[in-house]
Computed example of a mutant assay.
Amino acid sequence: MSTGILVDAERLAAIVLTLPGVAGLHGGRFGEISTYLPGRRVRGVRIRDDVVTIGVVARDTAALPRLGDEVRTALGPLGRPVDVWVGDLADPDDPTVPGDPTGTAAPAASAVSLRSTILEENKS
């Protein structure tokens, strides 16, 4: 069953990483929250026909109660439910993100501009 909406795992990941409560993406305990693309894997985003799952590393515990709603709002309508799974909490004294030893996980793009691009591409 196809929803008719094209979903790009790399763009979803970029949008989620712009959120202030998200320190990084989390692939799950065994890497099960991933999307496999030719020659690469997008950890923290799993796209299925019936659901999109986003795995995150939360920046702090204060963000937890609202984090799922913030992720869903930033992603916008995807034509299927979005489950948000918090796999870890970031250490405030460590600039690196679990699973990202370089500390370069968050891109500079804004969630609004990335979401607008996704919506424009789905109009055609």
Rank of each mutant, 00 (worst) to 15 (best):
V16L: 13
A58N: 02
A9I: 01
A58S: 07
R11D: 06
I5V: 15
V82M: 09
K123W: 01
D8H: 15
T104W: 06
V112D: 13
N122L: 00
A108Q: 07
D88Q: 11
L17S: 09
S124M: 02
D50L: 00
T3W: 13
N122W: 01
L25K: 03
A111K: 02
G4K: 12
A109V: 01
V71F: 09
R48Q: 13
D50F: 02
A23W: 08
A111N: 06
D83M: 10
G103V: 09
V82K: 12
L75T: 10
S2T: 11
V56R: 07
L67P: 13
A23I: 08
V42C: 03
G87N: 04
G55N: 05
L6T: 13
A58Y: 00
R29L: 11
G24D: 07
G79D: 11
V97M: 15
G44Y: 01
A108F: 08
R43N: 06
V52E: 00
V86S: 04
G21T: 14
L119R: 13
A108C: 06
V42W: 02
D49S: 14
G28V: 09
V51S: 00
Y36K: 07
R46E: 10
K123V: 03
P98H: 04
G39F: 02
R80Y: 06
L67Y: 14
T35S: 15
R59M: 13
T96K: 03
S113Y: 03
F30T: 10
I33Y: 01
V22N: 07
P107Y: 00
T102H: 14
E70S: 14
I118Q: 10
T102L: 15
